[in-house]
């Protein structure tokens, strides 16, 4: 059974239809990539999923209709977004940032255990935990953003362009981390422009183009498809 199911999801800004009726689903434990060019509607889809913008159509999560629920409620249900451009709290310390991630949780002992887990997963954050988040490098900020999201113990993690503005080496590191998080059983929807990298770590993929889903297949098939190759992989 799928954890998340979107049916005829539409998002429009004024008269402009950013997302024109898309259907997709994500099963429990899957790592699904949503790829496409600029302005394809990827971020809008993601924002609709986590309740940041109003959408039409239906979103089912674990069987319940969660369409247009406010994001603070969805976080409690386990749907957590790592926003585009990282969105860390730059004038708070790393530790405080992680604390904010656990905002929706109350069991102190579990939270403390998760702190240790995060510092294990991201040793570079452990070294700098008292430092202001704004002084971290771009890659470290992205790691912090992911760690902060994990602090809320998500069931469905929504990643918006984690590779944005990062050096290739750092991008590789981030993607390795995403794969590791997925291996721990967290369901992930990964929105990316870097189609090749995203598909390489994903189980399945959707290709979006001007507001609609053009292709949907296993990640391996998409990597080999001539359409995807021509449009996104530059081969």
């Amino acid at each position: 059974m799928s954890l998340l199911q979107a049916q005829q999801l539409k998002v429009s800004y004024g008269g402009i239809n950013a997302v024109k009726s898309v259907d997709f689903h994500i099963s429990k434990g899957e790592l699904v990539a949503l790829i496409g060019a600029n302005g394809a509607g990827k971020t809008s889809t993601l924002k609709a999923l986590c309740g940041m913008i109003k959408a039409k159509g239906n979103i089912f999560y674990g069987g319940a209709d969660i369409t247009n629920q406010p994001s603070c409620k969805l976080v409690n249900l386990g749907i957590v977004l790592v926003p585009e451009g990282r969105g860390i709290f730059s004038r708070l310390s790393i530790e405080e940032n992680l604390h904010m991630g656990a905002y929706s949780r109350h069991k102190r002992r579990e939270i403390r255990a998760d702190f240790i887990k995060m510092y294990d997963l991201f040793p570079r954050l452990a070294k700098r935990r008292k430092q202001l988040a704004g002084t971290l490098s771009g890659g470290e900020q992205q790691m912090l953003a992911i760690a902060r999201a994990l602090m809320s113990r998500p069931r469905l993690l929504l990643l918006d362009e984690p590779s944005m503005g990062l050096a290739p080496l750092m991008v590789n590191k981030i993607f390795t981390t995403i794969k590791a998080v997925s291996a721990e059983g967290v369901t992930i929807l990964l929105v990316e422009q870097n189609a090749k990298l995203a598909l390489e770590i994903s189980h399945r993929g959707y290709v979006m183009e001007s507001g609609t889903i053009m292709l949907s297949d296993s990640a391996q098939n998409l990597l080999n498809s001539t359409q995807v190759k021509q449009a996104y992989l530059g081969e």
């Binding site: 940041m52 603070c72 409690n76 926003p83 969105g87 709290f89 708070l92 904010m100 905002y103 999201a149």
Partner: peptide, 25 residues
Amino acid sequence: SRLGRAWAAIREDEVAAAATGINTR
């Protein structure tokens, strides 16, 4: 307090604050 931290988060980045489960409104 938890409240103060939530305010600080809103001050720093409202979208991210909402994404951590703060009822920004």
